[in-house]
Amino acid sequence: MTSSLREEKAARPAASDDGRIRYARFTTPPGPGPARAVLARVTRVLDRLDGDDTRLFDAPGPRGRRRIAVATVASLVVFALLAAAAVRQFAAHGQLDPAKWQLFAQWPVIRYLLVSLWATVQVTVVSGLIALPLGALLALARLSGNSLLSRFAALYVEVLRAVPLLLLIYAFLLGLPAVGLRLPLFWQLVWPIVLTNAAVFAEIFRSGVRALPAGQTEAAHALGFGHWQCLRLVLLPQAVRQTAPALVGQLVRLLKDSTLGYVVSFLELLNAAKVLGEFNHSVIQSYLVVALVYVVVNLALAHTATRLERRLGNRRREPGPGTVATP
């Protein structure tokens, strides 16, 4: 679908070209200059970046094109003004002082950030590795014929999805010592994340199984498969395939959840930013740099998710309004 839109867009200028364009082409020196190739490339990249919602409007006429040009210039001016205002605000309070930024080019600071990024990754990976099988188990329990098991799983999933992670973290932080249990800081952060995310993973798995056509189950039963055989050999392999992008998307959420280490003073990336900022009097710079790191890591993960989606080839399913990734 995407490719057909692209072709249409590419075909449009040719169809609507008037004398001016031909004249321009006539006067340009032979052989496409590198500038034009660069321009075409930039346009392609921009096209990929800003999505394909162009089907909402016709190819604009002369008046429409003029209006769009005016709006383009106006919006560029507004963005420039906003950027200028931001820079001025930063400069007026001495936050553009090179010393405050050069800090992040020094190896000790970079190493400190890398170590804390490693801690963030550790929290993410460890909680993902525990939460994923736990979620699968919960989904299996919920799909099992046993009403007691499935009720318990349903209750767990519904409650844990409706309780804020922060509340759970505080409960572990303040509640466990009260009953005489002492966990290391790392696990005090990981367990609440595991418990909430297992519920989310369970829902992802279950929706994956439920999205499969009923014919699959019926066919398996007709072939004499039992409930578990059907689940193990027919439904689960397909469900895992279909939900793989959603699972990777959930990993992004897990990574974001790990910032709550800030609350339990576990030294992950956000907490490191706080320490750096307070120590070097570069609060806003540290948070901005760390935000940038999160953006880079998460965009890489999201990119993996889209590639996975393309490779697993469920392109035939048009994403509905309900499939937007919730935070």
Binding site: G51, S75, F79, L260, L270, Y294, N298
Partner: peptide
């Protein structure tokens, strides 16, 4: 979804950036 490219680009970049920053940050 507007036909004005800078606006469209700004919104696209805003959405993908903000979605990858943790709320607490």
């Amino acid at each position: 979804i507007s036909p004005v490219r800078p606006l469209r680009l700004f919104a696209a970049v805003y959405v993908s950036t903000v979605r990858s920053v943790p709320l607490l940050v």
